[in-house]
């Protein structure tokens, strides 16, 4: 009997319900418009959701520890600009000419990591609320992104191969897909199999337990900010390559889109366990919604409205499910 209830348990699991929502959304659009249910369109959907998923992987971990990162959008823009600048102009101040792609990539990833360090220092050393700390860093990052090329976009002078990782395929599989797939796999492993993932869950779920087990929450949160910073930088590189230009205004509002995807995926702002899979489905739901409405020739502005409705609806749903589960446990615990 216990087995049976365990088997059916996934039916009420938030991620599964989310998946049903995703399927229903797909069915709805498939029946509403002939343009939606096509392989090429799905390729598009995945492409559109790439950055959300990649950065969302890091943000899921952060939010499990009760933190969040609003600087990912401007971090992405800064990386996009710096990467473009380095491969087109190099570092003029030091008399260094255009850098090769890999070298520029490494520098950008380091800068992304440093932004993560800045966030982490503010949150862990200065005891900032993550919301305020990363908001401040968001402004700084956006300003620097604009300052990189005097507020202008970089549109020409890119070396050969610049567009490859963002647009080309290998054996018919776009590089972007490979990156997303790798990110999902790596972070799922990090989540389930490594110390970092386990300790992140422990910190978010029960601070006292983490303390008595000798964990160091500050160190773990710092690492997660650095990882998220690097992921945002990587997404910036991919964006530059995909658009074939460096745009300092890219990624505006991106931080909130990621936040919504992670929240939809069932990771609460109050910390505790979340899942990478949930975040992925959350990202897909947001993208499918936009894409499907587009295909139906419904104004794209509706998707902003729907994003809001879905966000609030999902949070209410998640909190209800969580409360129900907790009540069931309490009822089971104290029958007396």
């Amino acid at each position: 009997m216990a087995n049976k209830t365990n088997k059916l348990k996934f039916l009420t699991h938030p991620t599964f319900i989310l998946f049903l929502v995703f399927v229903a959304l797909n069915l709805f659009f498939a029946f509403s418009t002939p343009r939606f249910f096509k392989l090429s369109n799905y390729m598009n959907i995945i492409r559109q959701s790439t950055m959300i998923m990649i950065v969302g992987c890091g943000c899921t971990f952060l939010m499990m520890t009760e933190s969040l990162d609003l600087s990912v959008g401007s971090n992405l823009a800064l990386s996009c600009m710096v990467y473009s600048f380095l491969v087109v102009f190099g570092i003029p101040g030091l008399g260094i000419g255009p850098l090769p792609l890999w070298a520029a990539g490494i520098i950008v990833l380091i800068i992304g990591g440093l932004i993560g360090v800045l966030n982490a220092v503010l949150v862990t050393r200065f005891d900032f609320e993550p919301f305020i700390a990363t908001l401040g860093v968001m402004y700084i990052g956006r300003g620097l992104a604009l300052a990189t090329f005097d507020g202008k976009s970089i549109r020409t002078g890119f070396p050969d191969g610049f567009e490859v990782i963002g647009n080309d395929s290998i054996l018919g599989v776009p590089y972007l897909f490979i990156f997303v797939f790798l990110a999902i796999v790596i972070f799922s492993i990090l989540h389930k199999k490594t110390l970092l993932g386990k300790h992140a869950i422990a910190i978010g779920c029960n601070k006292n337990a983490a303390f008595f087990s000798g964990l160091n929450p500050k160190r773990i949160v710092t690492r997660l900010y650095i990882i998220t910073g690097c992921l945002a930088a990587f997404a910036g590189i991919l964006t530059a390559s995909r658009l074939e230009h460096g745009d300092p205004r890219t990624g505006t509002g991106f931080e909130f889109t990621v936040l919504v995807a992670v929240l939809l995926g069932g990771t609460p702002l109050s910390g505790g366990n979340g899942t990478i899979l949930g975040t992925v489905i959350g990202a897909l739901i947001i993208t499918v919604l936009g894409n499907g409405l587009n295909a139906m020739d419904i104004l794209k502005f509706w998707q902003i409205v729907f994003k809001g409705i879905i966000l609030i609806g999902a949070i209410v749903l998640h909190s209800q499910l969580r409360a129900r589960r907790r009540n069931a446990l309490i009822a089971a615990g104290t029958k007396a």
Binding site: K198, N206, N208, S213
Partner: peptide
């Protein structure tokens, strides 16, 4: 106030903080 992490399994709780890695 029990110091167990609800979102982890029994095994993960038992080894928390002294994992073999």
């Amino acid at each position: 106030e029990l110091n167990v992490v609800d979102d982890l399994t029994t095994e993960e709780n038992l080894t928390l903080g002294k994992e073999n890695t």
